[in-house]
Simulated assay, not measured.
Amino acid sequence: MRRVKIFSGTSHPGLTEAICERLGTTLGKCDLKKFSNGETSVDIGCSIRDQDVFIVQSGSAKANDSIMELLILISACKGGSANKITAVMPYFPYSKQSKKKSHRGAITARMLANLLTVAGVDHVITVDLHASQMQGFFTKPVDNLYAEPLLARWIRHTVPNWRDSVVVSKNPGGTKRVTQLADVLKLNFALITTDRRRKEDADQIPGNEKMITLVGEVRRKTVLIVDDMIDRAGSWISAAEHVKLRGGAKKVICIATHGVFGGNCLKEMEDCSCIDQIVVTNSFPIPEDKRKGVKKLVTIDLSQLLSEAIRRNHHGKFIPHYLVE
């Protein structure tokens, strides 16, 4: 593509290279380094005057460093007279903090949206925001892409007898996401409600949840437990154990867009005998040390979805309704 420059932050260079390969372009030269005191330094190594600039920087295990790096990159491109600056953020950091959880809590996702705007961003492309209303935090256009078509295609091509499967939400908040996928695949869906143990419980086990209700029939069926991200293992393991041991499901596949896998989450899910497969996209970089020895993990590539969004954005074409909300 002409008059386009694509830059990568340090959070997910592999995904950026895959996007560039699909677009038939090369990665823009950019020197990212840290000073001895921990400060981030950015030096754009090519002309970006009157160019459409796309900066690919996802959330990562070092979320704060990734954010600061992105903000400085945006500011540097703004100072370099770029025509338009688009932040491509496959996983939007702090997306779980999109509302107040206490009287004196902060809405951190809104603050990050404000920071991006002040830095000089003109457009944001992201994938499966934790809460779709977060788009209202921005004063600039936001394309919230859906990974649903990619997940549906994987299910159709990979899951044996997928038409006999049931899509399950492990909490009431994820019902809309689950029903949308179930409608696309023309499958039945079910819902699990959980009773989270209070902090004052003396016998509390960290991350443990007590299952109280399964609404729907899963006996002798393949269960697809779906949510937007996998961060902690507790609720996923509880849901898998409930549908398999009590519900009589024959197979359980955990599916999410963002594989954050905090702490020992991935290992705990790998060790769970009730979980047969773990399916995520590559929106969030998973370190090799966490992947080591994990056989259940399947990663779906997002580069096709993101490269198509970038191409259409640059040429001023509409993005199909089934890809964006």
Score class of each variant (00 low, 15 high):
178 V>Y: 07
25 T>R: 07
24 G>N: 06
110 R>F: 02
109 A>K: 02
10 T>H: 10
305 L>W: 10
287 P>W: 07
84 K>S: 11
151 L>N: 08
81 S>R: 12
64 N>C: 03
45 G>V: 07
318 F>M: 06
73 L>T: 03
50 D>N: 15
310 I>T: 01
250 K>W: 01
256 A>V: 01
125 I>M: 03
183 D>P: 06
45 G>C: 13
306 L>G: 10
241 E>I: 10
72 I>F: 14
75 S>W: 03
71 L>Y: 04
192 I>L: 15
135 Q>H: 11
81 S>T: 13
126 T>V: 08
76 A>H: 02
275 I>V: 15
266 L>K: 00
121 V>G: 12
266 L>D: 01
289 D>P: 01
245 L>Y: 07
134 M>D: 06
205 I>L: 13
124 V>F: 10
277 Q>H: 14
156 R>Y: 06
44 I>K: 02
45 G>N: 05
217 E>S: 06
226 V>P: 00
263 G>F: 09
244 K>D: 05
270 E>Y: 10
133 Q>H: 15
71 L>F: 09
172 P>R: 05
249 A>D: 04
30 C>N: 07
211 M>N: 02
244 K>M: 11
250 K>D: 11
286 I>S: 00
146 Y>C: 01
9 G>W: 11
161 N>Q: 11
79 G>K: 12
237 I>W: 05
274 C>D: 03
87 A>I: 12
292 K>M: 04
267 K>Q: 15
81 S>K: 13
162 W>H: 13
106 A>F: 11
223 V>K: 09
257 T>N: 14
53 V>Y: 06
273 S>W: 04
67 I>V: 13
184 V>K: 03
26 T>V: 09
87 A>E: 00
249 A>T: 00
39 E>I: 13
144 N>D: 12
184 V>M: 07
37 N>F: 10
25 T>Q: 13
94 Y>M: 05
51 Q>V: 06
134 M>P: 05
268 E>M: 14
299 T>V: 15
50 D>M: 14
157 H>L: 15
69 E>M: 02
7 F>W: 07
42 V>G: 13
280 V>C: 11
146 Y>D: 02
267 K>V: 13
297 L>I: 15
40 T>K: 14
1 M>C: 11
83 N>D: 02
154 W>T: 03
99 K>W: 07
38 G>N: 01
286 I>G: 01
316 G>S: 09
320 P>W: 09
236 W>Y: 12
115 L>R: 08
110 R>Y: 04
191 L>Q: 08
4 V>L: 12
202 A>K: 14
291 R>G: 06
211 M>A: 05
178 V>M: 15
190 A>L: 05
26 T>S: 15
271 D>K: 15
231 D>M: 11
236 W>D: 09
306 L>W: 02
44 I>W: 02
204 Q>D: 14
